[in-house]
């Protein structure tokens, strides 16, 4: 039995038609409501949009959500976005889990909406199971040494070394050959301005 204190909110994203065209998002949302620990589920047009994020924040407060599942795109794209979003509503960012129902579901199984919806539901279910077990994490902060290393002294390397040095940061510019300049030093004139 799930912990009584669990108050999970599920946000199902239609992503315009990117998800909605092949996944029945209403059905997925209804299904989410029945999962253990879930106290709230809603469908959005674009969860990552400003109104979408505002709604997440509002619902976290309104429904006293303590964990969140966002069923939308890949976490490789929007995990930082939603972590930031839930933390603004006072939730630890690591208590948010994404269910990837776009890249790994709606976009790759577009032939059979019924089956694809079933898969999306399965993905949400596993994400809810995972979020039930997630714990708060604290990110540690480390100092950043205010010096830079630039590897390669071609036109790009020289440019960034100068930019960084002009800002006031010490830069080490390391170049394999005996001189800087790279391939550009071998060119007489360079397009499109011919100088």
């Amino acid at each position: 039995m799930p912990d009584d204190n669990l108050r999970i909110g599920v946000f199902v994203c239609e992503c315009g038609v990117n998800i909605a065209a092949t996944v029945d998002c209403d059905e997925a949302t209804e299904f989410s409501k029945g999962l253990p620990g879930v106290v709230f589920a809603i469908k959005n047009k674009y969860t990552c949009s400003e109104p979408g994020q505002q709604e997440i924040k509002k619902m976290i407060v309104e429904h006293k959500l303590n964990k969140v599942v966002i069923a939308s795109c890949t976490p490789r794209m929007h995990e930082p976005t939603f972590r930031h979003c839930v933390s603004e509503a006072g939730l630890n960012p690591y208590l948010m889990e994404m269910a990837n129902i776009r890249e790994q579901c709606s976009w790759v199984h577009s032939a059979d909406k019924k089956r694809t919806t079933e898969k999306a539901k399965d993905i949400i279910k596993a994400a809810v199971a995972r979020v039930r077990n997630l714990e708060s994490q604290t990110e540690i902060e480390v100092p950043v040494t205010q010096r830079a290393l630039v590897i390669g002294g071609g036109v790009a390397g020289m440019q960034e070394a100068l930019d960084l040095a002009d800002t006031g940061y010490p830069v080490y510019l390391v170049e394999k050959s005996p001189t800087i300049g790279g391939k550009m030093a071998q060119l007489d004139k360079v397009y499109p301005s011919m100088d």
Binding site: G153, M158, A161, L162, V171, L173, E175, S177
Partner: peptide, 14 residues
Amino acid sequence: VGRHPNITLLTYSE
């Protein structure tokens, strides 16, 4: 690049 006081230029280096 060679003259900038903030740049330590290490050529022929890896």
